[in-house]
Every structure is written in C-alpha cells, then in structure tokens.
Design a protein around this nucleic acid. Structure first.
Lengths: 98, 98
DNA sequence: GTTATAGGCAAGTTACTACTTGCCTGTCAA
DNA sequence: TTGACAGGCAAGTAGTAACTTGCCTATAAC
C-alpha cells in the first residue's frame, strides 16, 4: 500500500546512493559492471551478492527498473519517486517568491 | 564535512517523518507538544526521551532548528536540505520539457 | 524556600540491516 | 556436452540504531 518506507530505506544507505550515482552517469549497467565500477571508482570492496541485494532494495523502492536480455540483466534508474519527498514537506516557506 | 549522510539517516525513520509532518502542520512546537500530538493523532506510544533523540537527529541533519525561550524549546522545521536529494539524481529524463 | 514543569545525559537492551558464505539455476561459447 | 559466465537463493554473523530506564539540571509557579 505504502511504498514510501521502502523509498526512504533505499536511499538511506551510502552504497545504494553511490549505485544511483553510477546509474545516473551511465544508465543500463549489469550487476558485474556496477560491481567493477564501485570497486575501481569508489574503492568499495563490496561483494557481488551485497550489490545484488542493494539493487533489489532499490528496485523494490521503484528507483531502479530492470530489463532482462539473455543472461544479462540491465539496471535502469528511475528517480521519479524522489519527487514525493520534496512534495511532502514543501520548501516554499521563507522564500516568498522571486 | 558531508552532512548528507545525516540527512538521509534522518528521514529514514518513520517516526521522524511523522514529526516533520507535525511541524509542517504546526511549526514551533515544544518537545511535550510533539509527544502529545504523536500519541493522540498517530497512536505512537513513544517515550519523551525517544522523541527527544529523534529531534536531535533531525536537528543534526539541518531539518529542524531550535529556539530556546525560558524553560521552553521550540522546534522549527527547515525542509530546504531536502532539495539536495532531487538535485543529486535529476528527474528530467523521460519528460523532455513542456 | 519548595514543588511542579520542561528538558538533558548516559548506560543497557533489543531489533533490524548490511554483509558474508556456500550452493544452485540459467545462458552462451567451444 | 562441457565449461565459463551472469545472476539468484538462503542461512548465519556482526554492527548499528531505536528505545528504555534511571537520574540529573534549569526555569517558573506557589
């Protein structure tokens, strides 16, 4: 019913945020590609299974959509659920209007 | 240096999100007011100390600013740090422009 | 003064979550 | 068909975070 708890939980982890960064820079990567990039560019020694679990959390939050093709599974970012965060606590409070 | 981990951690808890909801609806409440509202409107039986710790986390994340006055401490919401979230992963991807 | 109110501090407990480990399934090339 | 590659499943472990408990400080009313 309420997918927002999953959303907040998903972006609550630093590794998952870096994964989103990576998918923003290069969309449609496979699990192994993401593992390699995290290891090289960010010095993260996370195992393949750890990344896989992170991707599952991101997918459940609606932030990542997957596309199967043969033995490859491509991961695509979808940041649109994040909009609900700023909509929930409106920022226009002290800045009257330009 | 990097306050964003605190930000994501702060909104990662459901009780803290409800506190932000309450402060959005009625800004500048004291600790006891918030406790009463959470108990009545949301059925949360959290102790005063629990709420106090939540407020400390929210304050450290920059989402809540406090103002002391006598023996009262008023809590004010500041949702502006949330902007960095939508700015980090741009949503304009499938919607070209109106 | 004394008492009640508003809040703070610190240690201990519990529950959750990220991560590992080990093994299994499915796809493609040789 | 065999082996390499891409990924999945499930149980166990460890670290963290939410919450409790108990006591303490400060402001204000009586």
């Amino acid at each position: 019913m309420d997918a927002e708890p999953d959303l907040f939980k998903a972006i609550g982890d630093a590794t998952r945020r870096i994964i989103l960064d990576e998918l923003t820079e290069r969309d449609g990567q496979t699990l192994f590609e993401i593992c390699g990039r995290l290891a090289m560019k960010h010095g993260l020694g996370s195992s393949r299974q750890a990344i896989s679990q992170h991707l599952a959390v991101l997918e459940q939050a609606g932030l990542v959509r997957t596309r199967r093709q043969g033995r490859y599974k491509f991961h695509h970012i979808d940041p649109s659920p994040l909009r609900s965060i700023v909509e929930r606590w409106p920022i226009d409070r002290e800045e009257p209007k330009s």
